[in-house]
Design a binder for these strands. Structure first.
Length: 95
DNA sequence: CGTATGACGTGCA
DNA sequence: GTGCACGCCATAC
């Protein structure tokens, strides 16, 4: 079980309507200091079953998305999460 | 095997 | 409040 796969598993287990930060995912994967790699892995994530859009930065920022940050925001909004500011503002509301 | 990179995080100016 | 720089880990080439 590589760290990469573990991270993907964790992200897959994220409940609907909820979000996790890269740091949280890394911690859940067993390497709380590997959030760096988490982002890197998700960026190269080729598994469509992984809702990588539910993973955000610890600062509350959206971060980025393979298919465009815009799309990520839309998906999160559908889940009940609204984005206050996508830049520096760092604000997302959960319902 | 070694180097470079990245969807980050925190600290400091 | 905003901007810049450093540090960290795993993956890719």
């Amino acid at each position: 079980m590589t760290f990469r796969k573990k991270v993907l598993e964790i992200v897959k287990k994220i409940p609907k309507g909820k979000v996790m930060t890269y740091a949280e995912v890394a911690q859940a994967a067993g390497l709380p200091k590997a959030w760096r790699a988490v982002g890197n892995i998700l960026s190269k994530n080729k598994n469509p079953k992984v809702p990588c859009y539910r993973v955000i930065k610890s600062t509350g920022e959206i971060g980025g998305y393979n298919r465009g940050k815009r799309k990520k925001i839309s998906l999160l909004k559908k889940e009940g999460i609204k984005i206050k500011n996508s830049a520096s503002g760092a604000g997302l509301l959960i319902n």
